[in-house]
Amino acid sequence: MSDDDEGGPVYATRGLRDLLLERAADAEPSQVNVVLDATPVADFETDLELDPATPVLSHVYFPAAGRAVSDVFGVDLGTPAGNGRARFLSHPQGPAGLTRRDDLAGVVLLAVPPWEEVLAFDRRGRELSLTVVDAEPPVESLPE
């Protein structure tokens, strides 16, 4: 997701959407704030009938990774360099829109109770079209 993606439709996997809603419900009354990453359509085995370069939000980076270094030096080691240009936020007490207190990214997914829907916004708070796709990202493994 780059600044060039702003204003266009946003795509996310159903698995990611479901995970985010579950995490928001489990964390209530606390807020959730996690970094998201995308997989290009070309990397999916399922034909999504989209341009192969289209990013589909598919992964989440949990904030616990690299937390000690981040707390001391302000460097987030939990998110690989160059990734995380999208973010998920939950607002347990509302509103169903971005606020000045929110951490922003090129694309922000947001959920509010009753945790049934995810909304998408650009960094300026304009709502974007979100399409949930029924596809699993490729399985990743560490090199040996």
Rank of each mutant, 00 (worst) to 15 (best):
F44S: 08
D18K: 00
P29S: 08
L16G: 11
G15R: 09
V139T: 11
G7C: 10
G106F: 06
A24Y: 13
R124C: 02
A24V: 09
R67N: 05
V108H: 07
P55F: 01
R14V: 06
L104Y: 07
H91D: 10
V72F: 11
A42S: 14
F73S: 08
L104Q: 09
S58M: 12
P40E: 15
H59V: 02
E45F: 00
T39W: 01
A111I: 02
D26L: 12
D51N: 14
G7S: 11
D5E: 13
L119H: 07
E28M: 03
A64Q: 14
T54D: 05
A111G: 08
L98W: 12
D43M: 05
H59M: 09
F73Y: 15
E116Q: 14
L16K: 08
D51V: 02
P114L: 00
D26V: 03
E22D: 14
T46P: 01
L36N: 08
V56E: 01
N33E: 14
G15F: 01
L130Y: 10
N83V: 00
P29W: 11
A64P: 02
M1L: 06
L130M: 09
L77H: 10
P40L: 09
T39S: 02
A38W: 06
D103I: 00
P9S: 14
E117A: 10
D47V: 00
A96H: 03
A65R: 11
V108Q: 13
A81W: 06
R101M: 09
L19Q: 14
V56D: 03
A64G: 08
D3G: 12
A81Q: 10
L130R: 08
A96F: 04
P137V: 02
A86E: 11
L110W: 06
R14M: 04
A64L: 10
L110S: 05
E22A: 15
A96Q: 10
L21I: 05
N83T: 13
R14F: 07
L20H: 02
R126F: 12
T39E: 15
P138L: 07
D3H: 12
V35R: 09
E127V: 02
A135Q: 07
L130W: 09
A38K: 01
G82S: 06
E136P: 00
V133C: 02
G82I: 01
D47A: 11
A25R: 15
V72D: 15
R100G: 15
G66E: 11
R101K: 13
T46V: 14
G82Q: 05
E144A: 13
R124K: 07
G15N: 10
E6H: 02
A135I: 05
D4L: 13
V10W: 06
